[in-house]
């Protein structure tokens, strides 16, 4: 399993993954529809802001915030945890282990390959968002765009790495889907997915900043909706990539320990 074979397999796997996403496009569409929670939160928060703005958020700011949240969620989605759970329990993972590509790399490519189709849904939403509220809600500083891309990549990696880590817990317990459930519950509240982090009371915000959740989705959204100046954004991105490195190492360790125990029942 050399690096070279992994790199060489990359384009082919990407193409296979894309074909798979296209083949199950109806299913992908339903999955996208299940992530409409930001749109419901948008309805709630705009109702809140109608009477008086909340912090720096007026009605339009909430519309932009949650539409961008929806888009970022699409672009950083990963379902590897469920996939690994399923494959470990049914012994399908042994098929992957036979292939000359590292399974984690294969999961990553499969998740990436669905991205173009998700873009097809996400882009019109993004365009619609800025048609509704006007372009002055976009960041004025052009440097924010590359920073946004970097933070988006960081979010994707963080979500993916966490998914693999929790998925790999399935090597040790019957099913780690419940762990994912708990993670999701925390994620919903503490990541900026349901409430912009800025609206938390300051003491709670200090705690949230030290947890990984907000770097999963909140950070790219905030950068695009102008919550930071340049240095502030850079500082937050540094923290985000710190979390990526930390959880990346943790994931690698869990995976290595787990694969030793793997017995491929039913395979």
């Amino acid at each position: 399993m050399s690096l070279r074979s992994n790199v060489r397999a990359f384009p082919v796997l990407l193409r296979v993954g894309f074909a798979e996403a296209v083949a199950y496009r109806a299913e992908l569409f339903v999955w996208i529809l299940t992530t409409t929670m930001p749109l419901i939160m948008m309805a709630l928060w705009t109702a809140v802001a109608e009477e008086a703005p909340v912090g720096r958020f007026g009605t339009n700011d909430f519309v932009v915030y949650f539409l961008v949240t929806f888009v970022v969620r699409q672009l950083t989605a990963s379902w590897s945890s469920f996939q690994i759970n399923w494959e470990v329990r049914h012994g399908i993972l042994s098929m992957r282990l036979l292939k000359p590509v590292h399974p984690v790399v294969a999961y990553a490519i499969e998740a990436l390959a669905a991205q173009p189709l998700r873009l097809v849904i996400a882009l019109p939403v993004a365009v619609l968002a800025f048609c509704i509220v006007g372009l002055d809600h976009l960041p004025a500083d052009p440097w924010m765009w590359p920073l946004w891309i970097v933070s988006l990549a960081g979010s994707w990696l963080l979500v993916f790495v966490l998914n693999v880590a929790i998925g790999a817990l399935a090597f040790f317990m019957e099913s780690s889907n419940k762990v994912m459930d708990i993670w999701f519950a925390l994620f919903f509240v503490l990541s900026g997915y349901l409430i912009p982090i800025e609206l938390f009371p300051p003491s709670a915000r200090a705690v949230v900043d030290l947890l990984p959740f907000r770097y999963q989705i909140g950070l790219p959204v905030e950068i695009l909706t102008g919550a930071y100046d340049r240095s502030g954004a850079l500082w937050m991105i540094a923290r985000q990539w710190g979390f990526v490195a930390l959880f990346g190492a943790l994931t690698a360790w869990i995976w290595r320990q787990g694969i030793r125990r793997f017995e491929a029942y039913g395979g």
Partner: peptide, 11 residues
């Protein structure tokens, strides 16, 4: 249930 109450408290 708690995760549902937190956004309400903030709102």
């Amino acid at each position: 249930a708690l995760t549902a109450i937190v956004p309400m408290m903030v709102a």
